[in-house]
Amino acid sequence: MRMQAAVHLVYPPQCLSCDALVTTDFGLCARCWRETPFIAGLVCDCCGTPLPGEETGGPVQCDDCLAIARPWSRGRAAMLYKDNARHLVMALKHGDRLDLARPAAGWLLRVAQPLLAPDALIAPVPLHWLRLLKRRYNQSALLAGALARLTDLPHCPDLLIRHRNTRSQEGRDRDGRFRNLDGAIRLHARRRWQVEGRPILLVDDVMTSGATLAACAEACLAAGAARVDVLVLTRVAKDG
């Protein structure tokens, strides 16, 4: 404790998102906290998007999840993909801010409680090796690993393989996103024994249409997973 206090005297904690001083490590200042759209209250049980109304104790689904057959069972999201949440995701994904994985895992844990089965295996959405070589790390694997440490659940960073280098999903409509991922993800052949008969918790940084998570979930279910749940740091949600 004395050592930490001494370090704080020399290097006082700064906001994760700006240079403002804060009272604890890995925290947000008051302004950045207000600008970070954390999700709370009634949410879609399948994708985690916030819904109007009060919690009634039973599961409810958003219009998208009612219209699309999701291969996974339940889903949660920590934040909406906008404002400061988008800034944090972009910093983690493209700005070499690997330090963000630790606090982000805490935000994931806050919403993940309904998904944390005692025998669950945590796995990230994979990157193609060419993209991994360029970026040097998989941000989803960082999130999944940090969450596994907080929950004491096993983590398999290479459970899934993106064997086809899909083009960017940006600018594609929902159907185009699903076509782009068709047949692109499969289970690592040497990891099948870890999947059979157990629940899988997939972790990603952003969910838009759900096409990538659907491809991952289908690969796990085809290998014999008992069920698949999904957990994302941010969820793209329709305004209004």
Rank of each mutant, 00 (worst) to 15 (best):
C15Y: 10
R136N: 13
D64H: 05
P50M: 12
R70P: 06
C18M: 04
D83V: 13
R76I: 07
C32P: 15
R136Y: 04
G41Q: 09
L108D: 03
V22R: 06
P118D: 02
D25A: 15
A20P: 08
G53S: 11
L88D: 01
A67I: 06
L127I: 10
D83R: 11
L51M: 07
P13G: 03
C29H: 06
L127E: 12
V43S: 10
M90T: 09
R70C: 09
L42F: 07
C65T: 13
H94R: 14
A91W: 02
R131N: 14
E54N: 03
T36E: 04
V89Q: 06
P103T: 13
A120S: 14
E35G: 07
L51I: 10
T56E: 11
L109D: 03
C44Y: 09
G53W: 15
L16A: 01
T23H: 06
F26H: 15
A104Q: 03
G106E: 09
L21V: 14
E54P: 01
C44P: 15
A101G: 00
C15M: 02
K134T: 08
P103W: 14
K134A: 11
G58W: 08
F26N: 14
T49L: 07
P126T: 14
V111Y: 00
R70F: 10
A67Q: 08
V60I: 09
A20W: 05
P50A: 10
H87R: 14
V111F: 02
G75I: 08
L100D: 04
D25W: 15
A78K: 07
L66F: 09
A101D: 08
L66C: 11
P59S: 06
L130Y: 01
R31H: 07
R76G: 12
I122H: 04
R97G: 14
D99A: 15
T23L: 13
C47W: 00
L42Y: 02
R86T: 07
R70T: 14
C18Q: 00
P118M: 10
A85H: 10
R102G: 00
L133V: 04
W72T: 02
G58L: 13
R135H: 08
I122A: 04
P114W: 01
L42M: 06
L66V: 09
T36G: 10
W33N: 07
L21Q: 08
L80D: 00
R70V: 02
L130Q: 10
T23E: 08
W107H: 05
A105N: 01
I122G: 00
V89M: 05
F26K: 06
L42E: 08
A77H: 13
L21A: 09
L28V: 09
K93G: 12
M79R: 11
D64F: 00
L133N: 04
N84T: 15
T23Q: 06
R31Y: 10
P71N: 08
P59F: 03
A78E: 14
L16C: 08
H87M: 11
A85W: 04
F38L: 12
A112T: 01
L115E: 08
S17G: 14
N84V: 06
S73R: 14
A123N: 01
A105W: 01
L108E: 12
I68C: 03
E55Q: 12
Q14Y: 03
A101P: 05
A69W: 00
R136S: 11
Y81I: 11
